[in-house]
Amino acid sequence: METTLFYILSAVTVFGTLCAITARQAVRAIVYLVTSFFALALIFYILGAPLVAAFEVIIYAGAIMVLFLFVIMMLELGSPEKLPKPRLADWWPAVILFLAVVGSVTVIAASRQPAIAPGFTAISVREFSQALFTRYGIAVEAISMQLLFALVGALYLGRRR
């Protein structure tokens, strides 16, 4: 059951992403992407990461995409005619790269020792949090510094002179 769901969700994710990256309007792309990320969040959930799934929905689909929308609106890039679109020629390298990366990773992932799923174990929120604040305390500090300086940088750039 869950296995089937995984593949269905995978299909949704891939399809949503495909639509997103080929969308003619940035706003539409965002919407497709949100869809795709919802599906991805579900996959996370299936893979035993409820917390990550939740954050995916909250931070990605919620905050980041909104930030994108906000900027698109602010710069008045919403209408399709204002947005320069990739020419057909621009897609060629993209497609080639796509095929190369996918092909290579497929070969690598599937080669020799096919990873046997040892039975997924869901990781509880407690376990997760404990790891986060004990083993990776420094990482939390580092990422918070980084977020702070993202703010500093954004403010600096936004300075009117």
């Binding site: 083993r135 990776y136 420094i138 990482a139 580092a142 990422i143 510094m145 980084q146 300086f149």
Partner: peptide, 11 residues
């Protein structure tokens, strides 16, 4: 560990 390493690098 890899995480701290990565975060330091990205920072």
């Amino acid at each position: 560990n890899l995480l701290v390493l990565f975060l330091a690098l990205e920072s």
